[in-house]
Simulated assay, not measured.
Amino acid sequence: MRFSLKTMLVGAIVLTLIASNLFTSWHLFQAQQLVRVQQMEIDALRRELRSLDTSDRKNVHVIAMETNQDMVWKWRIFIPPGKKFNLKSMVGTISDRSFPEGAMVTPIEPGEGVLTCSVTRNAGGDWDQDVRYVSGAHVATSTLKVFDSSMAWYGKQGSSTTSGSITTSMGQQSFSGEHRIELLRFRRWIQDQPNVKFAPTESTDGILFWLEPVERSPFPDG
């Protein structure tokens, strides 16, 4: 009888441990499922708000944002610590692949910020190329007058389209930061017959915005 009670006691303890383990495992599973659902909700909210996942602090991250304005483009950008870029822009003769010299330059500091670029008419009716970068308390702006002749192609039916860019239809894009990052290449397309357009391989009128890494000096400061 004593042995039987001892066996029952040990059995009860074992069953209790098994039940406790199953209960803990079930709670852990429920918690993991909740975390998974919450992460999916966070990811969906991040996509909706066009926010960046900057858990990878070594690469450059870019996501396009809605502007609901014609000829205005916006991107949220993360530049990793230790890296510096210039936003370069050009309105004029743009090739289908290369990057022109003599572009307008706006410095982009490390950290996360919002870059807004536009080519619009000002209150006086003249064309302006504007760049604005806001990162915390840091604000960098650049404005350059654009000649009417450089924008004569814009607005004509079948005359233009975006031939290359990081658009709002794309999610977050990540780059090593060692090379240029093309944000927008908006070029004139040629329409030689009704409803037929083609992109010329030679240089043509257009707009180009890109990030260019700033080369570090091989010599120490001072």
Rank of each mutant, 00 (worst) to 15 (best):
P110L: 13
Q173K: 07
M170H: 10
M1D: 10
T168V: 03
Q38N: 09
P81M: 12
E112T: 01
D128Y: 14
F209W: 07
L28V: 12
S176V: 09
V37S: 12
S176I: 06
V62Q: 04
D205W: 13
P218A: 15
R121I: 00
R47F: 06
G111H: 08
D130L: 02
I108G: 05
W75M: 05
R180A: 10
A19L: 09
H27C: 10
G125P: 04
T201A: 06
S95L: 11
F78P: 00
D126N: 08
S4F: 14
I13H: 08
K156S: 05
R57P: 06
A199P: 01
R180K: 07
R36P: 00
Q173L: 07
K6Y: 04
P110N: 10
L183P: 00
S20Y: 13
K6T: 01
V196P: 00
V139P: 02
I108N: 05
T16F: 14
Y133N: 08
V114F: 09
E178H: 11
S135Y: 04
P81K: 12
S176K: 08
W26T: 15
A19P: 00
W127C: 01
P100I: 15
K156A: 04
F186G: 08
D70A: 12
S165M: 13
T204D: 05
R180T: 06
P100E: 15
L211K: 08
